[in-house]
C-alpha cells in the first residue's frame, strides 16, 4: 500500500496468556472478533496508520505470545519499542498479579522511557470480574502507567488505548522528552515527515506524493 506517514512507532502488546492481546490487535487493525482463538505462537505483527493530532503515524505493533515458554522468543522483539500495551484480563486475578513481572521485562528489555498503557481487557465479562477498576488504577498510578479498561469483543476503548498511548509518545517527542533520532527509540520518521519538531540532523526527505489516498 502506498502510504505516507510522519512517524513510525514501534509498539508492543504484552501480558499473560489468554488476556486477549491478539484480539485487541485484531480489533484495532479491523479484523473480526473470534471467540475461540488459538494461542499466539511467538510473535505476530500488525500495522496501522492512525491520525494523532493531525499527524499520520504508523503503528508497528508486535503482538507477543503470552505463554511463558515463548518468553525467550518474544523478548527479542522488546528492543526499541516506543510504546506498549500491558494487558491483563479483568476476569483473571493471575493475569493481574503477573503485571509486575511484565512491567519489569518491558522497562529493562525495551527502553526505560517506554510509554506503557495498562489495559484491563474483557470488560464485557462484568459478571466474572476479579480485578476491580480501582485497584488496577492504583497499580497504574503507582507504576506511572496510563490505564484503560477495554473489550476486544465489543471494541470498547480498543482504538482509544492505542491512540492514547500514541498521543503520549507524540507529546513526549514534542516536549523533547523522547528523541526520535536516538537509536532504539522505537520511533522513525516516515515518508511524509516534514520534521518540524526537531532540528533536522539528516537531510529532510522530500514528502513524496502527498496526495493521501488512504
Amino acid at each position: 500500500m502506498s502510504e505516507t506517514y510522519e512517524y513510525l512507532f514501534k509498539f508492543l502488546v504484552i501480558g499473560s496468556a489468554g488476556t486477549g492481546k491478539s484480539s485487541l490487535l485484531n480489533n484495532f487493525i479491523g479484523n473480526k472478533f473470534k471467540e475461540d482463538r488459538c494461542h499466539t505462537i511467538g510473535v505476530e505483527f500488525g500495522s496501522k496508520i492512525v491520525n494523532i493530532g493531525g499527524k499520520s503515524t504508523k503503528l508497528q505493533i508486535w503482538d507477543t505470545a503470552g505463554q511463558e515458554r515463548f518468553r525467550s522468543v518474544t523478548r527479542s522483539y522488546y528492543r526499541g519499542a516506543a510504546g506498549a500495551l500491558l494487558v491483563y484480563d479483568v476476569t483473571s486475578r493471575d493475569s493481574f498479579n503477573a503485571l509486575a513481572n511484565w512491567l519489569r521485562d518491558a522497562r529493562t528489555l525495551a527502553s526505560p522511557n517506554i510509554v506503557i498503557l495498562l489495559v484491563g481487557n474483557k470488560k464485557d465479562l462484568e459478571e466474572s470480574r476479579e480485578v476491580t477498576f480501582t485497584e488496577a488504577s492504583q497499580f497504574a498510578q503507582e507504576n506511572e502507567l496510563m490505564f484503560l479498561e477495554t473489550s476486544a469483543k465489543t471494541g470498547e476503548n480498543v482504538e482509544e488505548a492505542f491512540l492514547k498511548c500514541s498521543k503520549t509518545i507524540l507529546a513526549k517527542i514534542e516536549t523533547g522528552e523522547l528523541d526520535p533520532e536516538r537509536i532504539g527509540s522505537g520511533i522513525q520518521y516516515g515518508t511524509g515527515t516534514s520534521k518540524r519538531l526537531s532540528a533536522p540532523k539528516k537531510p529532510v526527505r522530500t514528502p513524496s506524493d502527498c496526495a493521501c489516498r488512504v
Binding site: 500500500m1 505462537i41 511467538g42 510473535v43 505483527f45 508497528q60 508486535w62 515458554r69 515463548f70 525467550s72 522468543v73 523478548r75 527479542s76 522483539y77 528492543r79
Partner: peptide, 19 residues
C-alpha cells in the same frame, strides 16, 4: 507488504527456537 513485513520480522528476529 509481506516482504516488508518479512524484512521487519527478520530484522527483529531473535533467532530463538520456537517451541
Amino acid at each position: 507488504g509481506r516482504m516488508e513485513e518479512l524484512k521487519l520480522f527478520l530484522e527483529n528476529e531473535g533467532w530463538e527456537q520456537c517451541p
